[in-house]
Design a protein around this nucleic acid. Structure first.
Length: 805
RNA sequence: GCAGAUGUGGCGGAACUGGCAGACGCACAGGACUUAAAAUCCUGCGAGGGUUAAACCUCGUGCCGGUUCGAUUCCGGCCAUCUGCACCA
């Protein structure tokens, strides 16, 4: 009987004591760098979702070692963040203490599953020796003009009392605590990621990310091409600048709209005759959350700004200017030309406020040119310009270009590319994060801390509560805040905001390359050798932001000569989520959470690993099933018991030779394609075959164990030792196969009549077509009787089909 | 609304490039072993018809249609579910 507890402990103790899986510092060998997203060490411990990703990459890493690569497969902890801080506020335990405790728990859990991590390179984002370099990168960003302070409306969580990035706001509430998010003006550190928008799109061509991941990145960056156009404000020399992607519709612009926050109102308040009404609207809009403003199906609201008018530069018609919150101050110029006939939102607005709708594009597929549009016609691929002077008759796409040419020629505006991507709000009014290494001096302004003084350590405090108006907890600690200016030596005050959790995870993969270096974030040699990450796997939830942020930092580090590659990750894949056995997302409240410790305790680490790979396609969600994992344990027991009918043999027996070669081929390619579930099925089929014969020889067993080793490393090492293996499978060469030996000499093929299978015949591989024909006809002779054969189709070694009348 | 994905037995899922749909596992049923149970081993297992038993026949991969000798796979049109984004002009 297989005692997994004893065996698993034996091998884990050996591996982790000897550092079996530690990357070698031999830079002459070919390297392979596999990366999993390092976990946040939460109080709940490891989730069964973590091992799905870790096992997959562990399998690949183990295979690469057997293939002779110098493998780097590191692990660390992304330990700054809100849960530890919220826990501290509630229970008055320093986040440092809970974090350490949680990390110890995680480490133990991870080791109990037998991952082949290089524990000598463990990193921890909250370690001053680590965040020293996070701060260093920030200072470089600042020195290169990519970090700046700005007062801007930010998302403010009423629960966490903290500013949030757009991406942390989900459906109008805080991603973490679920409290409503409101807009608040605040001075924030910002990172100019927008400067990299185009490169973040373009360089996706050079990496091997899943298409859906690329699509998500591109969607998020949201590039659009169009033009900025000036509309004259009547009776002034002033202009209202708008952005449009459809300059071809400009003849149909019948009014304009500015966002509530647009400066136009302040500027012309003396001329606006209904200022009270406009101000009232502004006030109401400011009180709405982003979510309320964006809510779909919402009735459009707005107020006409009376007293000023704009002039359509192409028709020279005077048109009214409105204020409405359907125009966003944060995108484009915060003002639009409204073309109700060809924009759904403008159409809705025009209908509601009875504004003129002027059709300037017709559908090329539609004959009748009705006078009254039922809805806006927006199809750019099927439109033809009408009522548009020099654009008439042009297809929309050509009309767009012609319109821009005209606009540029007449100095009305210019071609312009816009991105939805905004600069990254980098400040958090929180305690448990990297201090931003900047001081403010009355004389010199913002000054970075000298690099030799890094790390700027987070002070030990006991009060983690944020200030009432959202100030950072650090703002209460005068002794920490007051300092001297590194520049002039005068009095200065420290920045009290800290960095967001995204900071530490934006570059951790670099630190793994040389984790104990106290002179650089990593040595040149290490960076040259290990870059880029060859394969990065993680959750779909991180494929947008984390990936974008770290690609941005990496590109910046490339620009300043720190890293040798343009992109950090050569390949990125994602795993599907594991659901509870009821098919719902695992959550405490639903009571369907599976604790990995209990699974390992009851079934063993190997069974746990095999099951996680067997449960379904790796990239798709899959529900947990206790019955199925039992099946995987049974499979491993059957493997163990094969020693009972082991016989001698240095070569594969005739009986199993083909199966062995086929299996090596199948498992080898399955692992590369992450089709782990079918690999496991292959193992099970093999075991069934060995059981049928009640026989397996040493050569077969050794190869079988080697193939299975990445999936179930403990039991296979033990068995291999038991059957007399001298070395460890971990570094034994991956088995090879002979293509010729994967092909069967005798093949069963179906014989069809009119595409329906009527019989099967056995033929020799590549048998002469005439002979196959003969056999096929013989097999279905009774059904051919008295029928006329119209056509016969033979696909070599595949199928014989006869068409009869 | 936009983008992407998914839909196959009671369940999780296989199926290379258009070529025997349901591999492998779970559950279930029967048998062997056992005083008995568990464990283990063996066998069966899409639906319907047919047969003493087989053979065999029909239907069947979300729905409707198309291409083809042949479609889970390709094309067109729907429906449903999931994920991400969402008044981005």
């Amino acid at each position: 009987m297989y005692n997994f507890k004893e065996v698993e402990k034996k091998w884990q103790d050996k591996w982790y004591a000897e550092g079996t899986f530690n990357a070698k510092n031999d830079y002459s060998k070919e390297k392979w760098y596999g990366l999993i997203e390092f976990p946040y060490p939460s109080g709940q411990g490891l989730h069964v979702g973590h091992p799905r990703s870790y096992t997959a990459l562990d399998i690949i890493a183990r295979k690469r070692r057997m293939q002779g690569y110098n493998v780097l497969f590191p692990i660390g902890f992304d330990a700054f963040g809100l849960p530890a801080e919220n826990y501290a506020i509630k229970n008055h335990v320093h986040p440092k203490i809970t974090t350490e405790k949680n990390i110890n728990h995680f480490r133990e859990q991870l080791k109990s599953i037998g991952f082949s991590f290089d524990w000598s390179r463990e990193v921890n984002t909250t370690d001053p020796n680590y965040y020293k370099w996070t701060q260093w990168i920030f200072i470089q960003l600042y020195k290169h003009g990519l970090a700046y302070k700005a007062t801007m409306p930010i998302n403010f969580c009423t629960g966490c009392k903290v500013g949030l990035a757009n991406e942390e706001v989900v459906n109008g509430v805080c991603e973490r605590c679920g409290s409503p998010v409101v807009q608040k003006e605040k001075s924030q550190w910002m990172l100019r990621i927008t400067k990299y928008a185009q490169r973040l799109i373009d360089d996706l061509d050079d990496v091997n990310f899943l298409d859906k991941i690329k699509a998500q990145q591109i969607n998020w960056i949201g590039r659009s091409e169009g033009a900025e156009v000036n509309f004259k404000i009547s009776g002034t020399d002033d202009n209202l600048l708008i952005y449009t992607t459809r300059p071809d519709t400009i003849f149909g612009a019948t009014y304009m709209v500015v966002a509530p926050e647009h400066s136009l109102i302040e500027k012309y308040k003396d001329r606006i005759t209904n200022l009270d009404e406009v101000e009232e609207y502004k006030k109401k809009a400011a009180l709405k959350s982003d979510f309320e403003r964006a809510e779909l199906n919402k009735e459009k609201t707005g107020v006409e700004i009376k007293g000023i008018k704009a002039v359509n530069p192409l028709t020279n018609e005077e048109i009214p200017i409105w204020i409405s919150d359907y125009v966003l101050i944060t995108y484009g110029t915060g003002a639009i030309m409204a073309v109700p006939a060809h924009d759904t939102r403008d159409f809705e607005f025009a209908k509601k406020f009875n504004l003129p709708i002027k059709q300037v594009i017709k559908d090329k597929n539609s004959e009748n040119e009705s006078n009254e549009l039922e809805e806006a016609f927006t199809d750019v691929n099927n439109g033809i310009a009408i009522n548009s002077d020099f654009l008439n008759g042009l297809a929309s796409k050509d009309a767009i270009n012609k319109a821009i040419e005209y606009i540029e020629e007449h100095k009305l505006g210019e071609r312009k590319v816009n991105y939805k991507l905004r600069d990254w709000v980098f400040s958090r009014q929180r305690y448990w994060g990297e201090p931003i290494p900047m001081v403010y001096c009355e004389k010199c302004g913002w000054v970075p801390i000298p690099e030799e003084k890094l790390p700027l350590k987070l002070p030990d405090v006991e009060d983690y509560e944020p200030g009432e108006n959202g100030e950072s907890p650090l703002a209460k600690h005068e002794e920490w805040i007051n300092t001297t200016c590194p520049h002039c030596g005068g009095k200065a005050r420290r920045e009290t905001d800290t960095m967001p959790q995204w900071a530490g995870s934006s570059w951790y993969y670099l630190r793994y390359m040389d984790p104990h270096n106290d002179k650089e974030l990593a040595s040149k040699e290490a960076l040259e050798y290990w870059s880029p990450v060859d394969w990065y796997n993680g959750g779909m939830e991180h494929t947008t932001l984390h990936l974008l942020y770290s690609r941005f930092w990496h590109k910046f580090l490339y620009d300043i000569g720190v890293v040798p590659t343009k992109e950090p990750y050569a390949k990125r894949t994602s795993h599907g989520m594991i659901l509870g056995s009821n098919g719902e997302k695992m959550s405490k409240s639903k009571g369907n959470v599976i604790n990995p410790d209990e699974i390992v305790d009851e079934f063993g680490a190997d069974a746990f690993r095999v099951y996680e790979m067997f449960m379904g396609p790796f990239d798709q969600t899959a529900p947990w099933s206790m019955e199925s994992i039992r099946g995987c344990m049974k499979f491993l027991d059957r493997v163990w018991n094969m020693q009972d009918f082991l016989v001698d043999g240095d070569e594969y027996s005739e009986k199993f030779e083909k199966m062995m070669h086929k299996a090596i081929k199948k498992v080898s390619s399955d692992i590369e394609e992450m089709k782990f579930n079918t690999s496991v099925a292959t193992f099970m089929t093999m075991v069934n075959e060995f059981y049928k014969e009640k026989q397996i020889n040493k050569a077969e067993f050794a190869t079988f164990l080697q193939l299975l080793n990445p999936f179930a490393p403990h039991m296979t090492e033990e068995l291999y030792q038991k059957i007399g293996g001298t070395e460890e499978l971990a570094y034994k060469a991956w088995p090879t196969y002979d293509e010729a030996k994967t092909i069967e000499d005798e093949i069963e093929i179906p014989v069809q009549i009119k595409g329906k299978v009527r019989a099967t015949i056995t033929i020799m591989k590549d048998e002469d077509e005439e002979k196959v024909k003969e056999k096929a006809k013989e097999a279905v002779a009774s059904q051919l009787e008295g029928k006329k054969i119209i056509k016969e189709i033979y696909v070599k070694n595949k199928i014989y089909n006869i068409v009869i009348s």
